[in-house]
Write a protein that binds this DNA or RNA. Sequence first.
DNA 1: AATAAGATTTAGACTGATCTAAAAAAAAAT
DNA 2: ATTTTTTTTTAGATCAGTCTAAATCTTATT
Lengths: 223, 223
Amino acid sequence: MKKLTPAEENYLKAIYHLLEEGPEKVSTNEIASLIQSKAASVSDMLKRLAEKELIDYKKYHGVSLTDSGHKTALHIIRRNRLWEVFLVEKLKFNWDEIDTLAEELEHVNSPLLVRRLDEYLGFPKFDPHGDPIPDEFGELSSKPRIVLSEVRSGQVGKIVAVNNSSAAFLKYLDKVGIYIGAKVEVLDTIEFDGSQELLIDGQKKVFVSKEVSANIQVMLHPA
Amino acid sequence: MKKLTPAEENYLKAIYHLLEEGPEKVSTNEIASLIQSKAASVSDMLKRLAEKELIDYKKYHGVSLTDSGHKTALHIIRRNRLWEVFLVEKLKFNWDEIDTLAEELEHVNSPLLVRRLDEYLGFPKFDPHGDPIPDEFGELSSKPRIVLSEVRSGQVGKIVAVNNSSAAFLKYLDKVGIYIGAKVEVLDTIEFDGSQELLIDGQKKVFVSKEVSANIQVMLHPA
DNA sequence: AATAAGATTTAGACTGATCTAAAAAAAAAT
DNA sequence: ATTTTTTTTTAGATCAGTCTAAATCTTATT
Ligand SMILES: [Mn+2]
Ligand SMILES: [Mn+2]
Ligand SMILES: [Mn+2]
Ligand SMILES: [Mn+2]
C-alpha cells in the first residue's frame, strides 16, 4: 500500500466510475475519453497500475479493479466528496464550482486529516451532488434510487442525486429550481421524446428533456 | 503569470525564507539544504525559475527574487498560513502537526478558494506559529518583535511567534507551557551560556537554553 | 475466410524533477 | 601567487507522465 501519485489516483478513480456503470471490464478508450488524455497514455499507465496490482489487466481486453484497487478508489472518492461537502457547506461554493477544486484536494492523502475533516463536517453521508461518501472502511450508504426518466406520471418522489456534475448541467438545474432534496411530481410524460412536465415542491412547473431527467436520481415516496 | 508546479512553488518559498534572514543573495547549497535536495537539482531548477523571470540568477553568484517572484512567494505563503490556521482552528490539529499538510495544501491555487477560506477563518492576520499572513496584495502586517534571547532580566513581554516550526521544538514548548500569547518575564539570564529563567503567565518558572530562546519572538510590554 | 475498420499497444520523443559523478569556478589557505 | 578546498555547474541517468505516429491485435463486414 505505497503512496500513489495524483495521476495514478485519477486513473483509479476513472476506472472505478466506469465500472460503476455496469460492465465488468472497461476499455482503454473509455478511460482516455473520461480522463481527457490519449489511448497511448492510458496503455502506459495501465501497465504501471497492473504492476502495482491495483488493476487486472490483459492486453487488448480491458481492465477491472483488484480488491486493493477498489478499496483505494473508494478512499480517493471519500476524500473527494468530503472536500466537496466542505466547499459547499463551509466555504459557500455553489455545487457547480467545486469539481476542479475537489479534484486537487482529494490527492492530499492523510488519514488523520480525512478523519478530522469528516468529524468537522458532522460525518456527512452524501456529497452536494447526492453521491454517497464511503466511510473509512470503504462502505457506502445507499438510498434506494430510481432515475427520474423512469418515474411514471402521477408518481411523487424526492430528488436525491445527479448523474452528471458538469457546471452546465448543474447551473441549468439551479435556474429551473431543481435541487437535491426537492419534492418532485411527474405531471406528464411525452411518449414521443420522453420529455416530462414536473412539479417541483408542489409549486413550480418545469418541463425537462429526457436528456435531463436521465441524469436525475429520485427516491420514490413510500405512499 | 502562468501556473507553477508544486516544485517550483516550493523553491520560490525556500528562496523567500532564506532572503528573509537578511542577505540579498542566497546560495545554491543553502537552498538544497533547506529543501532537502541536492545542489545539482537546485542548479537545474534555478535555471528554470530564471527563465520564467521569477528570480535573478547569475551562475556561481547566488539568487534573489524578482518582483514577480517575490509577489508569487507571498501568495504561496499566504495559502500555506491560511491552511495552517484552518487545520488548527477548525480541525483541532496541534501546531506541531500541520507542517506537512499545509505544505501540500498550499499548492492548490485558486484565488477564489483562498478568498473564501480567508473569509471563513475571519481574516486572520497571523498563523498558529505567529507568522504574519500576507493579504491578497502581498502586504504583511507586522508586530514589533524582539527575539527572547535578547530580552534583559526583569523585562516583561508577550510571546508572539516562533522561528522554528519543527515538531520537536513545538512539542517541547507545549511541554514546558510556552505558547503564542503567553506573558513572559525574564527572571534571570546566565552570562556563561545565555540560558534564561522565565516566568510564564506570572506563575510557571521555566529554564530555557539560548538555543530555545533564540527561536522565540517576543513583543515587549510597553511599560 | 479475407479484408477493412477500429481499438490498443509499442516505439520514440519530450518535459519536469531528481540523482551521482565529473568538471569548472570561486574562495580560502598557504 | 600558487595551491588546496569548497561550492556550483554540467553531463549523463532515471522515473513519471504525456504525446504522435507506426505497428499490431480484435472485431465487423463483405
Ligand atoms: Mn484528482
Ligand atoms: Mn460530487
Ligand atoms: Mn509545498
Ligand atoms: Mn506557520
